[in-house]
């Protein structure tokens, strides 16, 4: 069942060691509807990762509240709420392969479900399902996660999150450091899972083509604030505004703008993918 995520004037600090970063989230109001697929973009240090952590109760706001489905997190003790939220929200960190620890892939994937009280038998059967979902063979289950290749490790780590059967999936640059094909496969796999399980998905990315291809909505962050929350298509319409935020334009859209400038013909609509662009070109009779 899909759940909505809502931020109600959330302000939070982040502390690591003696270094305190004040207001990594600065009075954020945000509503991500149930079933939406949202991409979060922004510069390094703009608060993207902190926004994701706040969705999982890893950062507790000192002002305002975060509501996930029916559960609310605000300043103070939230022990019960935190447990409930972490069960519902599956979080894939940046380079998630660094969290693998168990002797076998199977044990690592079962770790999350077992923590939330799923029986061992059930956890093992879930492990098989999610492993297939991330495109790995069952024969890998008995191997050590450390013996796998980088791409395989990434998939196992993601499988470990999917195995918790979350209603909300939160991913911090799931494709970082992978080759283009591996990255595309991971994102397609996540999109498929998003549709099949009717999840609410939030993804941090730097690649505008990812935004154009996979997301429905886009959130732009700057200095801990949400400066824009829009549908992807209307977001990429106003190119001047995008330049102001130093946001790139997806390849297809960029090509469209170039063609429009060269030919002087305005294409109907905003093209986000190459097939869309091809259709638009045929429609106006350029090709």
């Amino acid at each position: 069942m899909a759940m909505q995520i809502s931020f109600d004037s959330v302000t939070a600090d982040y502390q690591i060691g003696p270094i305190r970063s004040p207001r990594v989230l600065d009075s954020i109001d945000l509503l991500l509807p149930a079933g939406s697929f949202t991409a979060v973009i922004g510069h390094t240090g703009s608060g993207k990762s902190s926004l994701l952590k706040a969705m999982n109760g890893l950062i507790i706001p000192y002002d305002g509240k975060v509501t996930i489905g029916q559960t609310t997190i605000k300043a103070g003790k939230n022990k019960k709420a935190l447990r409930a939220i972490r069960q519902k929200v599956g979080m894939v960190f940046q380079f998630p392969e660094s969290q693998l620890f168990a002797e076998t892939v199977e044990k690592d994937i079962c770790f999350g479900p077992l923590n939330f009280g799923v029986s061992l038998v059930e956890a093992k059967s879930i492990a098989r399902v999610v492993l297939k979902q991330v495109g790995l063979e069952p024969s890998i289950l008995s191997k050590s996660p450390l013996s796998l290749s980088g791409g395989q490790k990434r998939r196992v780590a993601i499988a470990g999150i999917l195995a918790m059967q979350p209603d909300i999936l939160v991913l911090d640059e799931p494709g970082a450091g992978l080759d283009p094909i591996g990255k595309r496969e991971i994102l397609q796999m996540i999109t498929a899972w998003h549709k099949e399980k009717k999840l609410t998905t939030v993804i941090v990315t730097h690649d505008m083509d990812d935004v154009a291809l996979y997301a429905d909505d886009v959130v732009v962050m700057e200095h801990g604030q949400v400066v824009k929350h829009d549908k992807v298509r209307s977001f990429f319409t106003d190119v001047n505004q995008l330049n102001e935020w130093h946001v790139d334009v997806p390849q297809a859209r960029s090509l469209q703008l170039q063609i429009e400038q060269e030919t002087g013909i305005k294409l109907p609509g905003v093209c986000l993918t190459l097939p869309e662009l091809a259709d638009a070109l045929i429609e106006v009779g350029i090709v």
Partner: peptide, 14 residues
């Protein structure tokens, strides 16, 4: 920093 990251990741897994 890395300890913090891994702790967060495992916390997220319950």
């Amino acid at each position: 920093d890395e300890t913090q990251k891994v702790m967060d990741a495992q916390r997220a897994r319950g």
